[in-house]
Amino acid sequence: MAKQYPNYDYVPCMACGICVQACPFSCLELRRTGLDTYRKAYPDLARREDCTGCGICASSCPVDAIRMGE
């Protein structure tokens, strides 16, 4: 099976940063802007090379905004 990476659904995502903090390798960053009128920074996979596909980010999300996929 190919390695799985976090894919974000930015509709439920609240930009709360829980996934960013949960990642053991700091692969995620609050850096994606332009998604709302508040200029919030949403999470994104910033260091794909460090991602192990562990899924901790997805399991930490309180609103199920992360799906692991290729």
Partner: peptide
Amino acid sequence: VRKYHCYACI
């Protein structure tokens, strides 16, 4: 330039 959230803030 952008909003700032503390951890777990919505």
